[in-house]
C-alpha cells in the first residue's frame, strides 16, 4: 500500500563534533515530500541541506528523529538492508555526477541494474533505453569524459532512473551548467521524470530554477525558515 507521503522527516537532528565544539547541522526538522511533487530544498552554504538530504536517503544516520520513505522507517533497518532499500527506491544525481570515466556511457547507466543482480547484457539493453529517454543513445559507447557537461548531467539522470526508483534526489543539479542548459535539464526532469508515483527532491541554491519547484523549503542554520508553494509564500 502506498503511503500518502513519499518521504517523511520527523524531528530530525544531526550534530557533528563533541562538547563545546558540537555543531548542529540539522536541528529538529520535519517535512513531507509527496508523490508527484518536485520539492526544492534551498538555502545558503552550511545551512544543512546536504546533511538533511543524506539523512532522508539513508546515507547519514541522524542523532535523533525518524525518516519514513514510502512508509518504511529506514533507520530501523540493518545497514545492508538500507543499502538495498536505497538501490531499489532512491535514485541519486550527484553534484559532480560521479560517472566512471573508464566505463562507457551505457555501462555507467547500467550500474544500478548490475548492482540489482541483473544480467550484464540485459542491464546494458535496459540502460540503452534510458539513454534514449535522455536523448544520448548515439553516445552510448563513448566514455563520459568525451561528453559535454550537460550531456554528462543527462547520463547521471539516466543512471538515477535506470532502476526505476520512486524517489529521485538531486544535489545541485545545475551547479556546473550554464543557465540555458540548467533550465533545459530541470524542464526535462519535470516534464519527463516527474510522475504521480514519483517524488523528486532537489537541493540547490540556483535561484534561476526555483520557478520549476512545486514547493520550496528554505533552510538556515539547520532549520526550516520558510516554505513556499509554487512561487507563492505558504505559512
Amino acid at each position: 500500500m502506498m503511503s500518502a507521503a513519499a518521504v517523511q522527516a520527523i524531528d530530525l537532528v544531526k550534530w557533528f563534533g563533541k562538547g563545546d565544539i558540537k555543531t548542529y547541522a540539522v536541528n529538529g526538522i520535519s517535512f513531507e515530500a509527496k508523490y508527484g511533487e518536485m520539492l526544492y530544498i534551498v538555502g545558503p552554504s552550511g545551512s544543512g541541506k546536504t546533511t538533511l538530504l543524506s539523512m532522508i536517503s539513508g546515507i547519514l544516520r541522524p542523532n535523533s528523529g525518524r525518516v519514513m520513505v514510502k512508509g518504511q522507517e529506514i533507520w530501523t533497518l540493518p545497514p545492508n538492508d538500507i543499502a538495498d532499500f536505497r538501490l531499489n527506491n532512491i535514485g541519486f544525481v550527484f553534484q559532480d555526477y560521479h560517472l566512471f570515466p573508464k566505463l562507457t556511457t551505457v555501462e555507467n547507466v547500467a550500474i544500478p541494474l548490475i548492482l540489482k543482480k541483473q544480467d550484464w547484457d540485459e542491464s546494458l539493453q535496459i540502460a540503452m533505453e534510458f539513454l534514449e529517454v535522455v536523448g544520448l543513445q548515439d553516445r552510448a559507447e563513448l566514455p563520459p569524459v568525451k561528453l559535454s557537461g550537460g550531456e554528462q548531467q543527462r547520463v547521471a539522470l539516466a543512471r538515477a532512473i535506470a532502476s526505476g526508483p520512486d524517489i529521485l534526489i538531486f544535489d545541485e543539479p545545475t551547479a556546473s551548467l550554464d543557465g540555458v542548459t540548467g533550465r533545459r535539464i530541470i524542464g526535462f526532469i519535470k516534464e519527463r521524470l516527474l510522475t504521480e508515483h514519483r517524488s523528486i527532491l532537489i537541493v540547490t541554491h540556483d535561484s534561476r530554477i526555483f520557478e520549476y519547484g512545486d514547493r520550496i523549503i528554505k533552510m538556515e542554520d539547520g532549520k526550516i525558515v520558510e516554505v513556499t508553494n509554487g512561487g507563492t509564500r505558504e505559512e
Binding site: A83, L87, F92, I111, L115, K116, R159
Partner: peptide
C-alpha cells in the same frame, strides 16, 4: 575513491 563512494551511495554494499 569517489567512484567507490558513489557506488556505495547508489546501493553497493561494503563487502561488494
Amino acid at each position: 575513491m569517489e567512484k567507490f563512494g558513489a557506488l556505495k551511495a547508489i546501493g553497493a554494499k561494503g563487502y561488494e
